[in-house]
Design a protein around this nucleic acid. Structure first.
Length: 487
RNA sequence: GUCUCCUUCGUCUAGUGGUUAGGACACCGGGUUUUCAUCCCGGCAACAGGGGUUCAACUCCCCUAGGAGAUGCCA
């Protein structure tokens, strides 16, 4: 049977790194096996559901360039691919389980459950979880609850004794005593919606899913799922629990570690190539040295056998490095197109840029390309071209071991040479400054540093002469004069 | 508390009984360079601990410790 895998997010928040990695691994696995990758929306949590999350899901994967073979927007033979549209089905299956004595109605109120949990918290030694209060209700007791108008949930009867074993492609055989499984989990909520466990099993079965690649946080519910497959007399799929993605402190990656939503990464100017490449290397590797992979290569090379069992820490710095690498691989035109929105948003230019602005960007790309880690870096890096920079402190102008007077002299000495920026090329200018350095006794660095600050407002900038050409000679000279007056 | 999973440089990892334990990021030095960055060269740095098995353990087994996850009418 050919491979069918799915990504089954619940639209209750923005797509985050962990989820995306799970999706990617599923996608790569499907492609590498010549199988199908399916998207299913698990919108059974009506309380936390949001349209924005759903839109974010589509936006994110469009940006990544990942397409599913079947899904709500694509169609397919196993639809609908949205759980809320399969509502009736879950109820029928849950009730079937009740009829067969494998599940039961539970009338316990949330208040009772809260109280129970509270008591168990106090007495840590007691068994945690539901106390199976309604597991063996008589018909009379049930009728009474019904008369009170209580809407029941349906709970699954976890066998009181026995052992569940299932095979994980990565972890091997996972064994668990049934008494260690969360006692009688809810299958159908009182609002008639299924819980994750129920809907997941039913859909995976009906969608002919062959492999479940999901994060290891799901491992504890594996035995429950196996039990459910058994209850329905269905063949369970093959499991593979992926190592989790952690923050620097070793805990599950979350917002307090930094950006986690793809939306944030996109806004900061990460490239999809970098994200895909980096994320694929958390918990997976190819060999002892190769680490650059395109999406297409991963579609071919990915394999479960190279997965790692241990959780991996998300390293923002390495992602940044990858991003810089991929920015440098962009053509000038590609980089230009990606950078314009950032400059436009900062108010530096219009989008699309006016003709003169377009020229300016063309000139700016080559000097900025090897300096960018994030696309958004373009704004602070080139702001001096678009904005007034006169706000810097006079102190900034003065190189180490120089003072205001000597710096003033340096600027006055350098000014005439700067005026030749239009006629001379970089090499000639440099030569001219070297000559000046010898004649004046000032070090080359001390000569150029004040000019750099005068022109760009900062000690760190793109190459000076190129920057001046982009800025315009007139403006540059005016800024130098302004600097001289500051001292 | 209970259950389960995990454990090689700070981080991501290679390694499947015999290796000077390899690579990358980060970090530190040096070179190129008008600053920064790029690029190049070099360095630092790891098999959690203890028992076995074996002629031989990072590799296999057990224990301990540490970490993580789960323990919901959330997924």
């Amino acid at each position: 049977m050919s491979v069918r895998v799915r990504y089954a997010p619940s639209p209750t928040g923005l797509q985050h790194i962990g989820g995306v990695r799970t999706a990617l691994f599923n996608y790569f696995f499907a492609r590498s096996e010549g199988g199908k990758f399916i998207l299913r929306i698990e919108d059974t949590d009506q309380v936390r559901y949001s349209d924005e999350s759903l839109q974010d899901l589509y936006d994110t994967f469009k940006w990544l360039g990942i397409e599913w073979d079947e899904g709500p927007d694509k169609g397919g033979d196993c639809g609908p691919y949205v759980q809320s549209e399969r509502f009736e089905m879950y109820k029928e299956y849950a009730e079937k389980l009740v009829e067969e004595g494998k599940a039961y109605y539970c009338y316990c109120t949330p208040a009772r459950l809260d109280k129970l949990r509270e008591e168990q918290q106090k007495d840590k030694k007691s068994q945690q979880g539901y106390d199976r209060h309604c597991r063996d209700l008589t018909a009379e007791q049930r009728a009474e609850y019904e008369n009170q108008g209580i809407k029941p949930v349906i709970r699954f009867k976890i066998p009181l004794d026995g052992m569940v074993v299932f095979h994980d492609e990565l972890l091997g055989d996972v064994k668990r005593k049934t008494r260690d499984i969360n006692p009688d989990p809810v299958l159908l909520k009182s609002d008639g919606f299924p819980t994750y466990h129920l809907a997941n099993i039913i859909d995976d079965h009906h969608m002919n899913i062959t492999h479940i690649l999901r994060a290891q946080e799901w491992l504890p519910s594996g035995p429950l799922h196996i039990l459910l497959y058994k209850a329905f007399e269905w063949e369970p799929p093959l499991y593979c629990h992926l190592p989790m993605v952690m923050g620097k402190d070793g805990q599950k990656l979350s917002k307090r570690h930094g950006s986690t939503s793809l939306r944030d990464f996109i806004a900061q100017g990460y490239l999809p190539e970098a994200i895909i490449n980096y994320v694929s290397l958390i918990g997976w590797s190819y060999d002892d040295s190769r680490e650059f992979f395109t999406k297409e290569e991963l579609e071919e090379l990915f394999t479960i056998t190279k997965l790692n069992k241990a959780p991996g820490v998300f390293d923002y710095k390495k992602l940044d490095w990858f991003n810089g690498q991929y920015i440098r691989k962009l053509s000038d035109d590609e980089l230009k197109a990606k950078i314009i929105p950032y400059l436009a948003e900062a108010g530096c230019l219009e989008n699309p840029p006016a003709p003169g602005q377009s020229e300016l960007i063309n000139g700016l790309i080559p000097i900025v390309k090897e300096r960018l880690k994030l696309l958004s870096d373009i704004v602070p890096m080139t702001a001096f071209l678009f904005q007034d920079i006169s706000g810097y402190e006079a102190e900034e102008l003065i190189p180490k071991k120089q003072d205001a007077a000597s710096t003033k002299e340096i600027l006055q000495l350098g000014r005439p040479l700067i005026e030749k920026v239009g006629e001379l090329d970089d090499e000639q200018l440099e030569e001219a400054f070297k000559v000046l350095s010898e004649e004046s006794g000032y070090k080359l660095g001390d000569l150029l540093a004040p000019l750099r600050v005068a022109v760009t407002g900062s000690r760190v900038s793109p190459p000076l002469f190129a920057s001046i050409r982009l800025l315009g000679l007139d403006k540059a000279v005016r800024r130098i004069d302004l600097a001289i007056n500051k001292l």
